[in-house]
Design a protein around this nucleic acid. Sequence first.
DNA 1: TATGAATGAGTCTTCATTCAT
DNA 2: GATGAATGAAGACTCATTCAT
Lengths: 204, 204, 204, 204
Amino acid sequence: MAENGLERREALMRAAVSVFSRDGFAGASIRAITDAAGCATGTFYLYFPSKEDCFAALIDRLYERVLRTVAEARRTATDPADKLWVSIGAVVRIFADERELAALVLLQAPGASSRFREQLERIRATLAALIVEDLEEVGLARWPAECAARSLTGALGEVLVWQVAERRPREDLLAAGEEVRRLFWRGLGLAPPDAPAPGTSADG
Amino acid sequence: MAENGLERREALMRAAVSVFSRDGFAGASIRAITDAAGCATGTFYLYFPSKEDCFAALIDRLYERVLRTVAEARRTATDPADKLWVSIGAVVRIFADERELAALVLLQAPGASSRFREQLERIRATLAALIVEDLEEVGLARWPAECAARSLTGALGEVLVWQVAERRPREDLLAAGEEVRRLFWRGLGLAPPDAPAPGTSADG
Amino acid sequence: MAENGLERREALMRAAVSVFSRDGFAGASIRAITDAAGCATGTFYLYFPSKEDCFAALIDRLYERVLRTVAEARRTATDPADKLWVSIGAVVRIFADERELAALVLLQAPGASSRFREQLERIRATLAALIVEDLEEVGLARWPAECAARSLTGALGEVLVWQVAERRPREDLLAAGEEVRRLFWRGLGLAPPDAPAPGTSADG
Amino acid sequence: MAENGLERREALMRAAVSVFSRDGFAGASIRAITDAAGCATGTFYLYFPSKEDCFAALIDRLYERVLRTVAEARRTATDPADKLWVSIGAVVRIFADERELAALVLLQAPGASSRFREQLERIRATLAALIVEDLEEVGLARWPAECAARSLTGALGEVLVWQVAERRPREDLLAAGEEVRRLFWRGLGLAPPDAPAPGTSADG
DNA sequence: TATGAATGAGTCTTCATTCAT
DNA sequence: GATGAATGAAGACTCATTCAT
């Protein structure tokens, strides 16, 4: 039982994801989380100051993973269109890899409390800013660029949550994300990416 | 004191929208709602069987307005592309007119309970089905059509919630909605509506 | 609908008996009673000052009927043994005639509140005093007489409630009451009543 | 603070007996019980799932003690009359030892809810079945035996509750119980117990 | 008299959080 | 660090009672 402290914390976060997903933030009890993690109620408070902070930590975890992956992907690209292209791919990939966490955050965070709403908004705004930047470099005006950026994050979120809710496998998430990317690409009047048209290995 | 029963119910629903928006479904207390409506706690239960049913009634209200407006708009159109065009316009208009209610439902319903999630999903699925239908008639295959439909509802929701959160006026909501429509129109490779002759005033 | 006031009151008391029997005193709501009586909530308060007073009125009603019937029966008797004999018969008859009311009072009154407990105790004490009087005249000492009197009321109540709970017809109640009377008669060492041994017409 | 869990539970049950006795089942608040037990409201729910279950546990406690004591007493007897004789003694003794609990159950259980009514009826039926069995072996027919059994439990309950209500000491309860036993013994035409030689100390 | 909408006090129950062990 | 019993604040909901009509 006496694992490393980090493992314990990890177990609690995994348990929290599944309990929050099932019961919602308000409906989840610490007891349910610690039961799922196999420890006592009090132990929870050795790793998180409160239930709220635990949920916030989950949002942060998704935030970090998304932003890190996007940043890495963008380093592989040169021109702005390419950056946008790989950014979308990166977001899709992360969502596919972290299905449960991502669905949890997208579904619960906005309604649970203003703190979470703002925290989530910070992620969205950061991503939107990157996209807006790319689109402006590509020639769009500010306002259409902002609308397009928000549309993109909204469309991706909806499509991926939908697929998760229908319990579709990872590949379906990736395929659906690809559809969204194509749709926006054409909608934005951008040229199809250089060569790696059929390839998926270079699109993340 | 003794207003008409419908007025009382209306006052409670208005109060509920604002309290739920501020505190979330779980965080809202009946006391806060009745205070805002200017009546006693028990009075709430003369009009709603439970807090949950009150929230559900709000979702239904949005549901009915959206679907009715969309249905009306579609009657004015003939070919499928036109139907899609006016449908989007109708949804945008409703959201602009019912800003607070719409934002409340979009933000809170998914996380509050599975009942609400399903209720909202029913709206989304209904709308998505209409869109898919139009897109298939226009030549798209099932899968891209479904992805496009979900992308569209997701994009519209996100863009409009974003505008509401930033406290933008009605016209901005309409303009942003228009941007989304243009973006998707091009993305889907559709021709601009017949003759925008009749103007945007008649487009849904 | 606008019947005579007494009829209205009567309807409410009938409704009260059936609702209190079904739901218990605490579990019964004024609403349920007025629904059963076919009038509005407020009307109840035109006839009873409170729910408690309504229940008290039911106890009083049983009280009066029991005592009146017993008093009448005792007037037909001359010697103390005969008085006791007809008193028991009278109580049995009343219980058989007012099955629902009697069972209600015996079951609910003791637990509902100290007021009712005392009210019921007053009936029992009155009856017990009569019996003790008879038994003392017949030669019993005070203490055994008191014990016998309480035993008798307890036995009668239990036997009759048992028969009511099992939904037995009126005749079974009468027969069971007769068994109890026989049992006590022998237990008290009294001679069988003069002549009307097989008859029931003169025993009340 | 941290007594043994069983002590805590015991303290709550004691408190419950006295609060239920004073206020009735419906009138008793958890707050009153925990105040009497010297702990916080929430603590109650660590030991009982609900107020109802707490009351049910009290009935069960009496049930077990009565049946166990009666069963033990009957093992010391051989012929059916003797069994009946010691059974009555055992019931009287238990009631005298558990005055408050017994009075609580007898007074409140029937009116509080059908669940309790049935629970109490189960005790009464079990006891009645034993008595009927004895009486049939002794020669009585079924119906008079059943009436006698119900009469006996009713008489004992009433006499003992009456003594408890008048705050009489234990000895009075025992004496009153003895009166009831004598009364029924004669009423049933049974011979006095073999030789009261072994004394009343061994009679159950 | 009759109505029934309105009131608001009261209760059971849950659960995040603490802390002695 | 780990435990889990204890806490007590908070909230949904009920219902006896009132009163304007």
